[in-house]
Computed example of a mutant assay.
Amino acid sequence: MKRLLLTPVFLVFALSLCQAQNEVENPAISIAMIASDMETSYDFYTNVIGMVETGGFTVDESFGKRSGLTGGTAYDVKILKLVDDPHSTEFKLASFGNPKEEAGEVIQDKNGARYITIYLKSTAEVLQRIKDHNIKTLGDTPLTFPNGKTFILIQDPDGLFIELIGN
């Protein structure tokens, strides 16, 4: 009898712990990239990396200022994803026409977000697009890991390092 009374109490307690630890609505993180040139970066991410545009929006002057995102400047955002799936990571691309900054040659040259990693089923197609668009691979990449996966390192037009890992 005592065991029967404790079971529901334990279940309610366990469920409340699970709810407290899961505050997120969507497990993917949306990342925003401010590009020096929207067209160049859009071309890179869609035609080299292979992302697809899944939407976009405009932030008007008023919201830009009230939200603290800008000092009152409006801007457009293009939403790119690796696959058009509601749960995949959003890569939001925007531009204010700011001059291109020196990115550095390796990730330790600057602080902040320096690189992203994209896991692919195969690196063959992206490697061909990299070659077709005359994108320089960095270091001695492509490299092959002991598990047989290929590692490629490139930079986007503004210097963000991009790791591409796959078969």
Rank of each mutant, 00 (worst) to 15 (best):
A32N: 11
T137Y: 08
Y42S: 06
K65F: 15
V24A: 14
V59M: 15
S62W: 07
E125W: 10
H87C: 07
L82Y: 13
E39L: 11
L17V: 11
E23H: 04
G159P: 00
A94M: 06
A32I: 13
V59R: 02
D158E: 07
D109P: 03
D85Y: 08
F13K: 01
I49V: 13
G71H: 14
F57G: 04
T73D: 08
G148I: 07
L82D: 00
E61C: 06
Q19F: 14
M1A: 12
L160G: 00
G166P: 02
L15C: 12
G166H: 11
G97D: 04
A35L: 08
L11M: 05
V126H: 12
K81Y: 13
S88F: 06
L138Q: 15
F44I: 09
F13I: 10
G112T: 13
A94D: 04
D132P: 02
S16I: 02
V52S: 09
K65C: 08
A124P: 14
G112W: 03
D76S: 06
L69E: 01
E61I: 11
I154K: 02
G56L: 02
R66D: 12
K92Q: 13
D156H: 04
S36G: 12
I107L: 13
I118R: 13
L127W: 03
V24I: 14
L17E: 02
E23T: 08
L6E: 11
F145T: 01
F96K: 09
I34R: 04
M1Q: 10
E105F: 10
Q108R: 13
T89D: 01
E125F: 02
M38N: 03
P27Y: 02
L6P: 01
G166N: 08
F63S: 06
S88N: 03
K136A: 15
E90P: 01
G112P: 06
F13Q: 00
A32F: 12
A103P: 07
S62L: 14
N167A: 12
A14V: 14
Y45T: 08
Q128H: 15
A28Y: 05
Q155I: 07
E90C: 11
G166Q: 10
Y75M: 05
